[in-house]
Write a protein that binds this DNA or RNA. Structure first.
Lengths: 218, 218
DNA sequence: GAATTCAACTGTGTATACAGAAAGTTGCTA
DNA sequence: TAGCAACTTTCTGTATACACAGTTGAATTC
């Protein structure tokens, strides 16, 4: 870092990380003075951090109680996926029209190799999730639409919380990789409709998996 | 208002209004001290207002220059409509599935009457734009998706700026009303595909109109 | 005459102090 | 014992003071 990171930014990243990692579970009350002393900064940067988190939708003002970490329910997951479907299908269309084939051809080779990757038994699946992240970034880049990318980033913040709630199993990861592969191949060949529909299929399965793994045993 | 509106909120609404109304044109530099003295509040609420505007994408930090009102270009309009297409088509689908038919039946009657409305020669077309606003609100309500509505609201902030840039002509308004009418009828009859595709058609024409009226005469 | 350096000023980032409002608690009364 | 009221405490919202960084301008030197 070229400059000492600003205190408000440090406070924002710290609180955001703790909320996403469920260290601050939904319902936690975030008082300004308490967080200021805990994070070792004054109230001013904490205020700014909390304002950004409110804009992100990670915390909300509750009457009289101050700011509270927002809840994530099953209904929230369905709503998130409804928006995600709209935005990612559009991103896939745009990427197929505008994307750099070479970039996605490289990703295609990586997704082909995922079965080998998963056999290596990386407990946290860091390599796989890193690949998915690069896929997302390539799509953002190829879509070349500031407003779309902004909306997707906001959405992903919430999706990360869901991911912590619903653990993926190895079979699902393998299936997801082949779904991603189809999307990537559609982008490489410039087939916008196929890219969009393959994204739809992928999200359908992802939602079913997320809902399935969160439902309690009867 | 039960309580005296908070100074930070007043500052936010004031600055937001001035940016949307082009009183603060793109490129305007917003210094904290200057705005604080102009709005009659201290720097703290102004800071909060500027932070919210930055999150909205209406202002952006420019290296060394402080905060600057963001620009709206032709490319921005295209990008906005790409996102709008994705979100509003999804909203139309959801509204067709979940919407209250009675509400949209009432809107249908209003849109049928728009030609009469436009003959009354209201210079600012307040009645018409009010109807469109009620249409948007009914769609938001029917879509019943917090994240979708949040994204749409953010988008509309930018679209209002475009609307000030590109004036609608009476012929366009009349055509837009019949496009809206088709969407509303599709929602009433619960036809999700038709609602989505009618929205697509509407946005296609709206974009063509916006781009046409902004292009300088050759 | 041009380039480089130094100084001053403007503007943001942070801390803290103060005021007002709201919620919880405690005590009194019916 | 239950309910109401008043008080206390703690919170947020706002203002202001202070420090540091970046930019701009001028002056001096090559």
């Amino acid at each position: 870092m070229a400059v000492p990171a600003r205190a408000s930014n440090r406070a924002y990243l710290a609180l955001r990380g703790e909320i996403i990692d469920w260290e601050l579970p939904p319902g936690s009350i975030l008082g300004e003075v308490e967080q200021a002393s805990r994070l070792g900064v004054s109230r001013t940067p904490v205020r700014e951090a909390l304002a950004r988190l409110t804009a992100d939708g990670l915390v909300a003002a509750q009457a009289g109680r101050g700011l509270v970490v927002t809840d994530i329910s099953i209904d929230n997951i369905r709503e998130l996926f409804e928006v995600r479907e709209a935005l990612e299908m559009q991103a896939a269309r745009l990427a197929a029209r505008r994307g750099d084939s070479a970039v996605f051809a490289a990703l295609e080779r990586e997704f082909v190799a995922v079965p080998d990757l998963l056999e290596r038994d990386d407990p946290a699946r860091h390599a796989y999730y890193g690949l998915v992240q690069r896929f997302d970034e390539a799509m953002d880049d190829a879509a070349a639409n500031t407003y779309l990318v902004t909306a997707l980033r906001s959405l992903r913040t919430h999706l990360v919380r869901v991911r912590r709630l619903a653990k993926d199993n190895p079979a699902r990861l393998s299936a997801a990789a082949s779904e991603h592969l189809l999307i990537v191949r559609a982008v490489v060949s410039g087939d916008a409709d196929l890219a969009a529909h393959a994204t739809h299929v992928h999200l359908h399965h992802a939602l079913a998996s997320a809902l399935g793994s969160t439902e309690p045993a009867p």
